[in-house]
Structure formats: structure tokens, C-alpha cells
Write a protein that binds this DNA or RNA. Structure first.
Lengths: 339, 339
DNA sequence: CTGAAAGCGCTAACAT
DNA sequence: ATGTTAGCGCTTTCAG
């Protein structure tokens, strides 16, 4: 591997000039800089990451913390982050917790303390007070995506509003008996997004003067499979059958559509279904949903963390929430109910 | 941040003893080691990653290269890698190419040259000669998952055999008119897995003396959406209708099932469908498939690269292919054809 | 505008 | 078994 000395020798300057020319470009005569750049290019010189990090204190590396990538939302956010960081010359170090408490502890108490990171992005993570404190002690810029409970510059849509909007869409289509599937999340992850969405549902129903009895709610985690099972429960149960279902996320909604079809219901003739997220499969199922552009959320998060990292004045750490765009995408799974 | 000197002072030893006690443990009196460990633990000391990397040449960091995470197979492999590396105290640096040739070039010519990695795992990537050469020059252990063309210790199932097995399953069920959907892949990724699977299909058909006319093949990329469209073509086309479909992957198979249902066909009464991969959705669709345990492939790849990295004798770099397990999972989407 | 020199925080010979 | 010392390859004052 060619080092800075060879470049210096080739360009006929000292190593400090090479460093300056390549890193800042200022305070270097244009002609010198060009000579250095040419030499570096020709020799294929790339500064050693660890050496320059040790000397400068900058790591050019952002850590991403998330609980498994098994949900489409999370891997979409990750993709957005990866692409943006790469564009800016930053590495992305990925930490996931395969539901192992020990691994999770290690990440916070070992990996993050190795001082390899300039900043941290967390995706749909509920952090314990202990973890939050750990993160603070590191004095690293941090920002969280997907969820709304963190005290460190959360970046998230207002899940309550989102759920209210979805429910109101159904109400506006004349539906009066509306079921909800969702509400379940693992401890330590997802920032009570399920709870927020359930609350949004309740609020909208109440505001419209509609009842939301327990019989019209079925708990489910955020997967297609759980949605499938829950919808069968909801639709198979004796008693009042809903004319519409608000699913807490698109995975659940898709599961519900499959379940309904298996039971012989037609969508949307017999039952309307709406979800939240903008899942890649939603188009195939003609699912009406609220798109929240997760990939763009990742890009935004990456850009914000880079801003924080490069901000000379460190006190300016963002602390307010950033409102994120979302958009009702009306497709074929919801329709007007004629009474 | 507490450094090695503070630990040394606290334990009443020199910094080199601290380093030894924590890193290797050998050549240190047991009592001393315990005192050092206790001090380190109490002070919350974690060695600076960059400093120890610079001094030792070990990065404790593996790079993972892959073309976007938009396929289930790839993110499953990644999850397996992440979990295994974490368990062994290694960081995982993620590089993706969002179909941008420039970004891809940067990864090979800038990021990888920063000497931050101990090894590289590539997931379903076709590397150009230029890229392969770049990788060789780095003299890093490398291993590739998903695909079979790399010359560096590929780790993959034999896709031709896999496809033959799938096709033979259909033939064994009396099917004679079998369609194939697949064969399409982006340039630079996927190592011609689509091609291999198509060849496996042709081989099996030929071996059984069955015709495989062009009208029974429909090209598609590896997504549900593409499978949906392709299946509609295949089934809507005038001429002989297949009684069974071999889809090159589960996403395509699921798309085909949805398409068939939309056209009014029943699965498996009217049409049998088989896929490959073991996708998480395959159970929901009762899809018969060949599971290739991608998560375990990731775990295996990680373990192998760690072996290579820690192998004292560097010449022992693995070069032979490792055969991977796969398993026919018969579910409800295929059935015997009664003539 | 450029060069010399002092680290960055640790590991690894080399001594003892 | 432990301490001393010389780097690892850069960045960044500090002088010129």
C-alpha cells in the first residue's frame, strides 16, 4: 500500500503539504496542490483510515443501530442511510440485536465505546434509561428514526396523526363499523409505534362518535403472518362484522387481505382495508395506505447526522423533532360504503 | 473517555501489562491480570479502536459488499453475518451500490483502500475483472455468498442442481407441460444465478425427454411484481397452457400465484407452482420451495472469514467452493397431476 | 505557503 | 512476569 511519504517524495514536497493539499486544500499554492493531487491519483494513494482517524479524531464512520432487519420499513431506512453516507465518503457500521439482550448490551457498552464513530443513527429503537445515558456519555451526535420517544432529536412522523388520518379516510367513506389490527410490539423496539397508532385510531373513532368495542380490535405484531391470523380472528368472530379494517401497518394489511380472500370476502366490495407505510407490496395488492417514504427518512437522517458531525460549534445539536412528510395513497382496497 | 494509562495507574502496573492482560492474557500473572481486569471493568475502559488498529494492524472489522438490500435473500444473509460478527466482537461495515456505477467504483477504489477492513464478504455480486483485481491487490481474505462465479472462495449452493431438483419435483408429480419464469438479472449482480437456474430447468426437462419451447418460458427479474406480470403473460398467451410453473425464486413464485388467482386459476388444482429460496412469505402462500437457509449462509460466511482473518498462516486462504445445504420443502402449491 | 516536529492511544519487540 | 521504548501513518500546531 502506498503511503503519504511516497506521494510526498513523488510530488517533491513534505508530507504535511500532502496532507494539507488533500484534506483542506487551503493554504496551499494551487500549483502545488495540483501536483500533489496528480501524484496521489497516479500512485493510487488513499490515506489510511485508522491513521488519519487517530491523528484527527474524525472517524468518517456512522453507526446504525437497529433491531434486526426483518421489516421492510427498517431495511428501507437503512438503504437510504447507506446510500447517502456513501455519497459523502462515510462508512456505515451496522449493529443489530438478534433479540439477544447480551448482544444488545455489548453494542452499547463495548462497541460504541471503541470510539470508532462520529455519530449514531437508531432505527425504531426504544432505548432504556441506561442505554440513553450510555449514548449521552459518548457525546456523539445521535438521531433516531421511526418512533417518537427518544429525547435525542427524534426524526419521525407523528404516528398518532397518521393513524387518525387512516381511520378518517374509512369514516369519510361511510364506514361505521371499523376494526383495528395491531397494537403489539416487542419490548425495547419500535418506540411504541403500535400504541401510538392504536391511540390515533381510538381518537378518530371517538371524534366521529363511533364505538370502538374490544370485539373490533385484534392484537397483532407487524408481520404479514400475524396480520393473516389476526384478520381471521376478527372476521371469524361471532357478532358484528366490520365493513372496514384499519391495519397498523402494510404487512398486517396485506395479511388481512389474504385472510379475507381465503374466507371468501371480496376486497373492497365486502371489506375495505387500509394500512400504513407504503410497503413495496402495497401496489400489488392495490392496498390503500399512507406512504411515509422510509427510504427518504433514511436519507434525511443521514444528512442531518452529517450536519451535526461537521458542525464546528458542537452546542448546536438539534433537539427538536423534525416533522416528516406522509401521503395518503388511495388505491383499490378501500371504497365508499353504500348503506 | 478513560484511557489505558488510567487503568495502568489504577492497577499499579505499566500500560504494556494492561494491554497484555486485556488482549492475550498470557505471560501475565493471574493476580495481576485480575487486578487489571477489575480496574478496567470498574473504570469502564474500552480500548480505542483506531489506536489499537493502527498499532496492531488488526481492524476487527469486516466489510460487506452488496447491491442494495431490496431482496429478502440478501437481507437474510446480511442478518446472519451481522449476528455472527457481533458475537465475535467484530464490526460490520456495510457497502451498497444503489445502482450507481460511480458509487460502486468509489467503494472499490476508495473505501476498501482505506485499510479499515480485515476481510470482505460479497453478497450476490458479479465482479468485473477490474474489481476482482482491486480486491486481490488488497490482499484481504474475501468470500462471496450467493452466486458461483467468483474465483475467491465462493460459498454457494449449486444453482443448476437446485433448479434441476425443483423441476424434477414437478416432473415426478406427472407434470409434462412445465413453464419457467426467471432468467433475468441486472448486470454486475447476482452472478448469473438466473442463468444457472434456467439451465438447471432445461437440463431436467431434456433428461426427462420433455420439450421446453420458448412459449413456456417468460423472462422476469427476481421480484414479486415481475413474477406477477410474467405469469400473466405465460398464462394468458394462446397455445398450450402449462400445468406447472417453476419460478426461479420465491418472489417470482408468489407473484405467479397471485397472478394465477387473479386469472381465476386455483393453486394447486389447476396449476402447480414451485419456487426456490425459502422466503419468509412462502409459508403463507403454502408455496412448495427449495429452502437454502440464507441466514445460515450468512453465519457460515462470517465464521469462515473470521477463520481466514485469524489464521496465522496466511497462505491457507480457502479457494475451494463450499457446498451448502438445501432442502425441498413440499407445501400446498404443488400436487400430483392426474391425466 | 511550506517544512519540522510533536503527538493521537495503543501494541509489540526488546530488555530486564 | 513486567517495564521501556519504538513505532503504526497520519494531522496539526508551530516556526520559518
Amino acid at each position: 500500500m502506498v503511503g503519504i511519504e511516497e506521494v510526498a517524495a513523488d510530488a517533491g514536497v513534505s508530507i504535511s503539504t500532502v496532507s494539507r493539499a488533500l484534506n483542506r486544500g487551503d493554504q496551499v499554492a494551487k500549483s502545488t496542490r495540483e501536483r500533489v493531487e496528480e501524484a496521489a491519483e497516479r500512485l493510487g494513494y488513499v490515506p489510511s483510515g485508522v491513521a488519519s482517524s487517530l491523528a484527527s479524531g474524525r472517524m468518517r464512520n456512522i453507526g446504525v443501530l437497529m433491531p434486526e432487519m426483518d421489516r421492510w420499513f427498517r431495511s428501507s431506512v437503512l438503504a437510504g442511510i447507506a446510500s447517502t453516507l456513501g455519497k459523502h465518503g462515510y462508512d456505515l457500521t451496522l449493529y443489530t440485536f438478534a433479540s439477544s439482550a447480551e448482544q444488545r448490551r455489548d453494542v452499547f457498552h463495548k462497541f460504541l465505546r471503541r470510539q470508532r464513530l462520529d455519530g449514531v443513527i437508531t432505527i425504531s429503537m426504544d432505548m432504556s434509561p441506561d442505554e440513553t445515558q450510555e449514548l449521552s456519555r459518548l457525546r456523539l451526535p445521535a438521531i433516531s428514526v421511526g418512533g417518537s420517544n427518544s429525547r435525542r432529536a427524534p426524526l419521525s412522523v407523528d404516528d398518532v396523526s397518521l393513524a387518525r388520518l387512516a381511520t378518517e379516510h374509512l369514516i369519510a367513506l361511510n364506514h361505521r363499523v371499523i376494526g383495528h389490527i395491531g397494537g403489539l410490539g416487542d419490548a425495547g423496539i419500535n418506540c411504541d409505534v403500535p400504541g401510538d397508532r392504536q391511540r390515533g385510531f381510538s381518537q378518530a373513532m371517538e371524534a366521529a362518535g363511533l364505538p370502538a368495542p374490544a370485539s373490533l380490535f385484534e392484537p397483532a405484531e407487524f408481520t404479514i403472518e400475524a396480520g393473516l391470523r389476526a384478520a381471521k380472528q376478527l372476521l371469524g368472530r361471532p357478532g358484528q362484522r366490520p365493513t372496514a379494517i384499519f391495519a397498523a401497518c402494510d404487512e398486517i394489511a396485506i395479511g388481512a387481505i389474504i385472510a379475507a380472500q381465503q374466507l371468501g370476502y371480496r376486497i373492497p366490495e365486502d371489506i375495505s382495508v387500509i394500512g400504513i407505510d407504503g410497503h413495496e407490496l402495497s401496489e400489488i395488492y392495490a392496498l390503500t395506505t399512507i406512504d411515509q417514504f422510509p427510504r427518504r427518512q433514511g436519507e434525511l437522517a443521514a444528512n442531518l447526522i452529517l450536519e451535526d458531525v461537521t458542525a464546528s460549534d458542537r452546542s448546536s445539536a438539534r433537539t427538536e423533532e423534525t416533522a416528516l412528510p406522509y401521503e395518503l395513497a388511495v388505491r383499490g382496497s378501500t371504497r365508499l360504503l353504500h348503506d
